[in-house]
Design a protein around this nucleic acid. Structure first.
Lengths: 155, 155
DNA sequence: GTTGAAAGACCTAGTGA
DNA sequence: TCACTAGGTCTTTCAAC
């Protein structure tokens, strides 16, 4: 697919939808001084071409009993393809694991873990994460406060 | 406010909206075998009570030229309130900084940085991040691959 | 690519059960 | 909680520019 670059109107629409995807075409068209049909067509194209991957509700994690967030750095015994693949396959099955990235540097993976409290993290660590094969070390860091947490990319 | 706990219907609705917030009340009511009026009232309450914080479009970062993601661990010279506050105030102004968490452990903050490539990261590091006052050290790790990246909490 | 108009779908609030 | 209703809003399509 040709990477049809975004023009200024596309960018303005994406900025708005990154903040609030429930904005109506009418509201957007008013804000950007374009017709409803134009806005509608642009958004249809942005979805079809994959610029907009998903539209999701963001929950307040403290209200649903996920007050503790940890980042866990995992180092594996070796880097055989099967070792990496097995770790990835298994770790993403844990519901506590919100994100898993393979990394450059002094460890192999970084995980973002969300649990209700330290006790729940401990249970997760001891009975789930640490039981996976080929793990050399796990180092965990806990979030004290969220200074900024944004899903919107500047455009 | 009393923390009115979520009942099974609330949880099912939140599960669906975390995956796709554009589902119509009609579709949800069909899936969960409830009336549209019931679904409508539940969602209204979930928003009002703050369970649903925001509804956002998630973009494909590779398509908008943010291919490189880094985690940067920052250690400050001291932990005076003003030192912490100044760092936070300044760092969240950088558009490359998607997230900033104050952490427990051997460093003070972890940042998630999104840039177009390593050169852009280098520019950010050299001319923005490293110029902030009272920084002792910055250690950066780069994402090789995204194994899992979810905004939806299991319920 | 953009526009206005028109038809159909959906939202929302209300009533009564 | 549900079924039903009705007015108002929004989506989606399309011929025309």
């Amino acid at each position: 697919m040709i990477n049809t670059d975004l023009d200024p109107l596309d960018r303005e629409i994406l900025k708005l939808l990154q903040q609030d995807v429930l904005l109506t075409n009418k509201e957007i068209s008013y804000t950007l001084r374009k017709s409803i049909a134009t806005v509608h067509e642009r958004i249809r194209r942005l979805r079809e071409q994959g610029y907009i991957k998903r539209s999701v509700a963001i929950l307040d994690r403290k209200k649903i009993n996920r007050s503790l967030v940890a980042f866990s750095q995992v180092l594996l015994n070796d880097h055989a393809l099967s070792t990496l693949a097995t770790f990835e396959e298994e770790v993403i099955k844990f519901p506590e694991v919100m994100e898993c990235f393979q990394m450059t540097g002094t460890f192999d993976f970084i995980l973002r873990i969300a649990t209700s409290d330290m006790d729940a993290y401990h249970q997760f660590y001891r009975h789930k994460l640490a039981t996976l094969p080929n793990i050399t070390s796990i180092q965990s860091f806990f979030v004290l406060s969220e200074t900024k947490s944004d899903t919107a990319y500047p455009l």
